[in-house]
């Protein structure tokens, strides 16, 4: 399944696997012994992961396993208690979240965080701020550089929106969009920072099946077009198994398995983590993992429906 583009996963140092085609490149992301404790709780512990330069990787695990915390560590929202993060070989220790973004990590949030009162286009243009070359004064008195840069950014925002065929909502207020559309805008906004690594936190949550199918195709399209690495947290096993080349399973803050989707589906530890007991039959285990994931993801469901309603009403 993961061999769709003819690439195999191959081992690299630090007990990890990346797609074969990325083997000669600097990994997009390398985590070494990453860990953080909140009070006494080891939210993430001994986290080692290598992501190939153009890999689509999945981070899965039950609710509360520490997946979102890993994203917050990668973006320096939290300072790790232990370990290092190398982004394209560069240690991001001590950087601010904004600096990490400039260095090349873009992300979306589990609970959508759009600039609700700005238009969709403005949301995306905020993310291009660092690449826009005009100063405060140029903007206030409207020098030619203002018009030139604004026009360029406007065009680029429309180009990026085209990935999801969303140019028609460019001038809509972001907060007024339905839930699924808001998730897509968040992805586009993250892409507008020109990331080397794109982190997606439950991108399909709250989407209907046809939206999810589109999303799957688009995640691949994004990787192919921009040649970047994508790491996604997702409970939708169908999406994960279809899109991801490598998977990393987290439980209670620890990695319990790494490998290709096929390997993960067969892994008894993983099945046990999801279900609390072992299954032997492969076909059954896929269904079991699916069912379990669905069950576990219910924890975040009320929040999602609330958001959906809110978005719906505004529209």
């Amino acid at each position: 399944m993961y061999k769709k583009d003819g690439s195999n996963l191959v081992p690299v140092p630090s007990n990890a696997v990346i797609p074969e085609r990325d083997i000669n490149d600097m990994p997009a992301l390398e985590c070494k012994n990453l860990g953080i404790t909140f009070g006494g709780l080891h939210a993430v512990e001994n986290f080692n992961l290598t992501i190939g330069r153009t890999e689509i990787a999945g981070l899965i695990g039950p609710n509360g396993a520490g997946k979102t915390t890993v994203f917050n560590l990668l973006t320096n929202v939290y300072q790790p208690t232990t370990g290092t993060i190398l982004l394209n070989g560069m240690d991001t220790h001590g950087m601010s979240t904004a600096q990490v973004s400039k260095a090349g990590i873009g992300r979306t949030f589990q609970n959508i965080r759009l600039f609700n009162n700005l238009t969709v286009e403005e949301n995306i243009m905020v993310a291009m701020d660092n690449s826009m070359k005009y100063g405060l004064f140029d903007g206030l008195i409207r020098l030619p550089s203002f018009f030139r840069e604004e026009k360029k950014a406007h065009q680029r925002a429309l180009d990026l929106l085209h990935i999801f065929d969303m140019e028609n909502v460019a001038s809509h207020r972001a907060g007024s969009l339905p839930y699924g559309a808001q998730r897509r805008v968040e992805i586009v906004r993250a892409l507008a920072t020109d990331p080397k690594v794109l982190l997606l936190d439950e991108p399909a949550a709250g989407m209907n099946p046809s939206e999810t199918a589109d999303l799957m195709a688009n995640i691949r399209k994004i990787r192919d077009t921009f040649q970047i690495a994508v790491v996604l947290i997702e409970h939708d096993m169908n999406l994960v198994m279809n899109v991801c080349e490598g998977l990393c399973v987290l439980n209670f803050g620890r990695i319990i398995a790494k490998g290709s989707p096929a390997e993960i589906q067969k892994n008894p530890t993983v099945i046990e983590a999801y279900l609390g007991k072992s299954h032997t039959n492969e076909g059954e285990s896929q269904a079991a993992v699916d069912a379990a994931a669905e069950e576990k993801s219910e924890g975040s469901a009320p929040e999602n429906t609330k958001e959906t309603r809110k978005g719906g009403k505004k529209k």
Binding site: T75, V77, S96, T97, A98, Q99, S101, K102, G106, R107, F109, R113, L114, F115, N116, N117, L118, E122, N123, M125, V126, A127, D129, N130, M132, Y134, L136, G139, L140, I141, R142, F146, E149, E150, A153, R189, A190, A192, T193
Partner: peptide
Amino acid sequence: HLVESRYGRAIMAIRDNRIAAESVGV
């Protein structure tokens, strides 16, 4: 003119969601 420039956009982005604004490099 401030509000309609990149400065104003970033300022309003911070108002709407500071964490998201930081995450896109503001």
